[in-house]
Design a protein around this nucleic acid. Sequence first.
RNA 1: GGGCGUGUGGCGAAAUUGGUAGACGCGCUAGAUUUAGGAUCUAGUGGGGAAACUCAUGGGGGUUCGAUUCCCUUCACGCCCACCA
Length: 819
Amino acid sequence: MSLNKEYYPQSFEAKRMELWDKNKTYKTLDNSDKPKYYALSMFPYPSGKLHMGHVRNYTITDVIARFKTMSGFNVLHPMGWDSFGLPAENAAIQKKADPAKWTDDNIDYMKGQLKRLGLSVDWDREVTTCKEDYYKWTQWIFLQMYKHGLAYKKMSPVNWCEECQTVLANEQVIDGKCWRCDSVVTKKNLSQWYLKITDYAQRLLDDLDLLKGWGDNVKTMQANWIGRSEGAILNFKVDGTDITIPVYTTRPDTAYGITYLVVAPEYPDIEKLTTPENKQAVEEYRENARKMSEIERLSTERVKTGVFLGTYIINPLTGRKCPIWTADYALADYGTGAVMAVPAHDDRDWAFAKKYNQDIIRVIDSPEANPDECWTGEGVLINSGECNGIKNEEAKKKIIEIATRDGFGHAKVQFRLRDWLISRQRYWGAPIPIVYCDKCGEVAVPEEQLPVKLPTDVDFGVQGKSPILTSSTFLDTTCPVCGGHAIRECDTMDTFVCSSWYYLRYADPKNADKAFDKEKVNHWLPVDQYVGGIEHAILHLLYSRFFTKAFKDFGLLDFDEPFENLLTQGMVLKDGSKMSKSKGNTVDPDEIFENYGADTARLFIISDSPPARDFDWSDAGVEGCYKFLNRVYRLYSNYEDKIKLDYNIDQNFAGKHDKLIRLCHIAIKGITNDIQNEFQFNTVVSKYRELTNAIYDYITDGDINEDVYSFAVLTLLKLLSPVTCFMAEEIWEQLGAKTSITHEAWPEYKEELAQLNDITIVVQVNGKIRDKIETTLDADGEALKAEALKMEKVLQFTEGKEIVKVIYVPKKLINIVAK
RNA sequence: GGGCGUGUGGCGAAAUUGGUAGACGCGCUAGAUUUAGGAUCUAGUGGGGAAACUCAUGGGGGUUCGAUUCCCUUCACGCCCACCA
């Protein structure tokens, strides 16, 4: 056997892939003496074709998985499909295709592309969320949530996307628009299923501290989203009634300055709080607010509006009668839906009070405060009865004490996080396993009756309702309790429910009796390295953390956090903006595979920027990587007769031979460190190039020692193999190796050889470089100092000055301080 | 308004965490080879200066023998959250 003279990846990449497949080279066994390592990519939605973002994501994870395998770990590197969701259903509507078929076809195609990319994935563990053997367990998990009181149904105003004809979770509304289709979201009053993620708010917040391997940006985003704040509930009696309005405030210290109260337009008791003469105006205002989209509500940011209800509350601290208003700057679903207004110390209240002529009472004074402006800073209490003279931070506690003592309030921790709305009025999702019995009401489907299968006799052309309602077989069923007539829940689950536990299923993908085996999950999890896009910083990553914590409480597993280390890779850009079909600046991975091969794609996508940063695609850069691989390849194809697998470098080498060996050790050390240090693949690639250049330098004079040369090029080959896996495997085999290079040990370096013998010492005077000394590693510091002091350049710059001290940094520099 | 980041050549970037700023590459310039193009190889490539030198890591200040790195201040950009009481 021998190598082609020229690098022609098309001639061997496909063949290599088939052999890996056939030989099950990347099969992962549960039992191994080696320590485990779980490398995970965020699994793709099977949209049709891979884009460069996928290529970047999966290449990064694959390089990590291959590196860890060679470093002696038993690596789990799985892949699957987040395959429920709207695009399949939309395709069904537009192209009259079956969503299952559409999804399967896409999976087939994309799986081929992933293999073409050379992923070292154990495909026997593939997981597909829209298959019965998976969604059965998604439904089972829902039942566990239900059983433990974490899944419940309630009527409330929800986010409605008219375009998608479904409700959305809070996390899926971005700037008042649908995260998927970008159309305006409105409010609708519906009875919907929720998961009680709020029960876990504090733990989700606290445990962020456990996540040492997560970037602060993601942790901060989650902390902001959870939004913990400390304050108080204060209850205000409505004058002349038995009604009490509780408000939540983070500023109880300003409670003596309340001059009016605001309730949200959706406030439940609002009708009882409205006097007959104000009824019409209030009704109109509420109607208007209801019709307004989130966007409009946001866009009215600076113009405050509201209507007086005609009633008053009494401030128990001051006895003051304060009018009750409704205004849409009070939010129905945060706090209690009612706000105490202290215009003197809150910007929003100030603006409102100015517009509607409400009283303003200053209760916090500060030398910096201007009486004609709103003051939200620190200060000392005034106009506050028994609290006068107290600093406002202390007054917060004091007033909570008073409220508690007198029975009109208490301290309260409030979260911004809302419960997770998981109902979707769509077909292509996991059915919620609940039935509504004529007699027994809401009943959970017994576990042994799972899965509740998606019906196939549906009409996708139906307008204004979920296609699932057109099934003649699905809706009517019998009650598992009484055997009487019952109707199935016809909403399906948000796809984020499916993706909140898939990483557990990989540990035990074929289990027909359980969602996953506890022991296997405890063995493989937590994920050692998770790689994916920053766009999931809140959504998927928060939901998955919630699921893991709930599962721990259910006794299904024994860890708190699913993902130990998280790498959020940057976007792939072209010409400075995100690749997108609408901008027409996409690059098709298939074209790159065809023209340059997968190795070039893999090398290029990790080469130019560190993984976390955005990556600007350039055609010239691809070309450059391809040329580099050609250059590397020729080191083997042109010198095949000089390379032997059983080389011996345990002998004394001098001069350029010694230097090349040292450069190899330097490369091993540098590359290993760069990978271990947050996967700095861009500098790994530059070190590949340095070593390649060094080997070319070595051979230019034709004096090639076969042992040294073999050591150098085989070291390079192994170092390259996690990245350019096809070429490395091809050359490796052509050189006569019998086993996959994947199963070779990662090269090790000797510290004493990971430095050059000839070094340059920089000589500075007062921190400025004046000269250099060429010397060797073993040179004596004192002697070097003495030599430096005698150098002509040094004398020139120290002339007439006193030498204060001489600093010597070993192997680096001498700095002479002269005054 | 709050939070988190980022500012280094024409471009992507690097800098062993306080020690030669610009590694490595893209691009560009010249040369070799080639009938030509491509490919390949060699040399050069931050600014100013003929040179000695000197200036330069968004701007200004500070600490230090020495600062891209630490501190203060200021500007610009990016992302996330936001009438959250």
